[in-house]
């Protein structure tokens, strides 16, 4: 992933205009023992990778590697929704205030609208679509259905993902733990009481190994 690929507009130190081809690197300067790594970096800039313009990257979403063309400024949410047609994560505010775009990244709940797509490379991304296999819902999803933890349903994917992360971390949450864990998910219809019931029910079932 971190390999340079100029056709992809991913390159090492492309910002160093006129520094030539990339043959010159900190390693080449320093392995010869000519100057210190720090001094070399002062000339060459830090090690790393540059992406500019429209670029094809690979994202690992719901267990599958997906190639997607993005710009550096493309958010993960936009990459998922607008490019990969993975529309479970919703855009409620596009500013990290509502939690409707919550996804799991390496198992942790994060906001896709406040993550750059290029910054999500190499991570395991799970959207709400990845929580159920084919038609079989997770115990938590089933509990949302049975307890009516949704009304218009627009915030629901975010809530389901946030609650999934919560239960993973804390299989036996108190009501206050649930409220804290879901405090970043705005539901304008006001389904919270039923959501709390759903999470408690699912926790019970999952603790029994359901």
């Amino acid at each position: 992933m971190s390999k340079s690929n100029s056709s992809n507009k991913i390159s090492r130190r492309s910002f160093l205009k006129g520094m030539g081809s990339g043959i010159l690197s900190t390693a080449t300067l320093t392995t010869g023992g000519l100057i210190s790594k720090e001094a070399a970096a002062r000339i060459l800039g830090p090690e790393g990778e540059t992406i500019s313009g429209r670029t094809v990257i690979t994202l690992k979403v719901n267990g599958k590697a997906r190639r997607v063309a993005v710009e550096p400024r493309t958010t993960l949410l936009s990459a998922l929704r607008d490019r990969l047609d993975i529309t479970g994560p919703k855009e409620g505010c596009d500013r990290g205030h509502c939690g409707a775009c919550t996804v799991l990244m390496d198992g942790k709940a994060v906001l896709a609208c406040m993550t750059l797509a290029v910054d999500a490379r190499g991570k395991d991304i799970t959207t709400v679509e990845g929580l159920s296999q084919d038609d079989s819902l997770s115990p938590l999803q089933k509990a949302f259905v049975e307890k009516d933890g949704l009304m218009c349903g627009f915030c629901t994917p975010g809530l389901v993902v946030a609650a999934t992360a919560l239960l993973k971390e804390n299989p036996n949450p108190s009501l206050d733990d649930i409220k804290e864990g879901l405090a970043g998910n705005l539901c304008r219809c006001g389904t919270y009481p039923k959501v709390f019931e759903a999470v408690q029910t699912a926790a019970k079932i999952m603790r029994k190994g359901g």
Binding site: L137, Q141, V145, E146, L150, F154, P157
Partner: peptide
């Protein structure tokens, strides 16, 4: 339970935005 709930909890329900 509402009939569309499975689609909504699984992220399959398509809204105008989707």
């Amino acid at each position: 339970p509402r009939l569309e709930a499975p689609d909504k909890v699984a992220g399959r329900a398509k809204y105008t935005q989707d």
